[in-house]
C-alpha cells in the first residue's frame, strides 16, 4: 500500500453550515504535511471523513488508494490521533492499548513496545483518567503507532501542550516522516508547524486556499513587496503612487511598496531627491503568509478598534 492520503472534492453540509466545500489535496510520504486553517475551516471534519467516521455528501477520500471503510486491520495502515481525551478514565493506559491491539489481532508485546516508544512505560498501569494532557497526547500517539502504520493523521496535536511537549512531538513527527511515512498534522496556529512541516495545505471555509511547500509559500507571500524607510513619507508616497505602485504605511517612517521593483524605487526617489535610509525586499514570515492566505477565510474575527 502506498503511503498517501488523497482527498478529492469533498463536500459536507451540517444543516445550514457548509463545512466542506470541494476540499481536495494529496498527502505524500516522507514529510510532515501541515494542515492549517482557522478554527471552523473544516480540518477536523476532513480528517473524520478520511477516517470513515463522518460520511461526505460528495467526493472521496482514499488512503493508499482505498476508502478507509474497506481497510482490514485498519490500524496497520493508518494511525490517527483525534481527541486525546477519548479514553475511558478508569481504564489503565496499558489496557486501553491492549483492547485496541486485540482488535487488530496484535498481542501485548506490541503494546509494551509503543508504550516504551512514547515514554509512558512507567505510567502503563495507571488509570488514564489521571493523566495530564501531555500524557494523554502521548498515549494517543502510542495508539496511533500500534499498527506501525505508513500513514499518520494527527488533529491539533500541539494544542494546549507545554513547550517541552511541543518540542517532543515535533521531533517525533519529523523522525516518523523521515522513515518514509506520510504524516498529516492539523493546526490552527502556523507557528506550531514552523520547522516541522515540509509541506502545507492551507484551508479556509471548507476548501484549500494553498497547497505548497513551505519555501514556496513564503516566497509567494513575499512576492514583489519592498520595505522602504524614509523620513519624507508623504513625498515618497506621492512619487511612488504616481509611478503606479501600491503603497501602504506600515510605521511612522516605513512604507511597504508593491508593484515596483527595488531598483526602480531607488531610481525614482534619487531622481526626486527624496531621502531614504533603507530599501529592502520584504521577506514574509510563515505566519504572515498564512494570515495573508486566510484573511478571507476566518469565520469569526475580532472587530479592530
Amino acid at each position: 500500500m502506498e503511503a498517501t492520503i488523497e482527498v478529492t472534492g469533498l463536500r459536507k453540509r451540517f444543516g445550514e453550515t457548509l463545512a466542506l466545500d470541494g476540499m481536495s489535496f494529496t498527502v505524500r510520504p516522507g514529510q510532515v504535511t501541515g494542515f492549517v486553517g482557522p478554527n471552523g475551516a473544516g480540518k477536523s471534519t476532513t480528517m473524520r471523513v478520511v477516517l470513515g467516521l463522518d460520511a461526505a455528501d460528495e467526493g472521496q477520500a482514499l488512503i493508499g488508494g482505498q476508502p478507509y471503510a474497506s481497510l482490514r486491520t485498519p490500524l496497520r495502515h493508518v494511525g490517527a490521533l483525534l481527541d486525546a481525551g477519548a479514553l475511558q478514565p478508569s481504564r489503565t493506559a496499558r489496557n486501553h492499548l491492549l483492547w485496541l491491539a486485540h482488535s487488530q489481532g496484535l498481542g501485548s508485546r506490541r503494546v509494551d513496545e509503543v508504550l516504551e516508544l512514547v515514554g509512558l512505560r512507567s505510567a502503563a498501569k495507571r488509570k488514564a483518567g489521571g493523566f495530564s494532557l501531555g500524557m494523554r497526547r502521548r498515549l494517543g500517539i502510542a495508539a496511533a503507532l500500534l499498527g506501525d502504520p505508513p500513514v499518520l493523521m494527527l488533529d491539533e496535536p500541539f494544542n494546549g501542550l507545554d513547550p517541552e511537549g511541543i518540542v517532543w512531538i515535533r521531533g517525533f513527527l519529523r523522525s516518523l516522516a523521515a522513515e518514509g511515512r506520510a504524516v498529516l498534522v492539523s493546526s490552527h496556529l502556523m507557528s506550531e508547524l514552523q520547522d516541522t512541516a515540509g509541506h502545507l495545505v492551507v484551508v479556509g471555509r471548507g476548501r484549500v486556499v494553498a497547497d505548497a511547500g513551505v519555501a514556496e509559500l513564503i516566497a509567494a507571500a513575499s512576492n514583489g513587496r519592498v520595505t522602504l524607510r524614509t523620513p519624507a513619507r508623504p513625498e515618497a508616497m506621492r512619487v511612488l503612487a504616481s509611478a503606479g505602485a501600491t503603497v501602504t504605511v506600515t510605521d511612522r517612517d516605513t512604507l511597504t511598496v508593491s508593484g515596483l521593483a527595488a531598483e526602480h524605487i531607488v531610481g525614482l526617489l534619487s531622481g526626486q531627491v527624496i531621502p531614504f535610509s533603507e530599501v529592502a525586499a520584504h521577506r514574509a514570515t510563515l505566519e504572515e503568509a498564512y494570515l495573508e492566505l486566510t484573511r478571507d477565510a476566518v469565520e469569526f474575527r475580532g472587530t479592530p478598534r
Binding site: E2, T73, S103, G105, L106, D148
Partner: peptide, 21 residues
C-alpha cells in the same frame, strides 16, 4: 524515498478479534 511499510505482524481481521477486543 521508499514508502514506509508497516512492521507490525500481519494481524487477523476476524470477528474473533473484535470479540477479544
Amino acid at each position: 524515498m521508499t514508502p514506509y511499510r508497516s512492521q507490525a505482524p500481519a494481524g487477523r481481521d476476524g470477528f474473533a478479534q473484535l470479540l477479544h477486543a
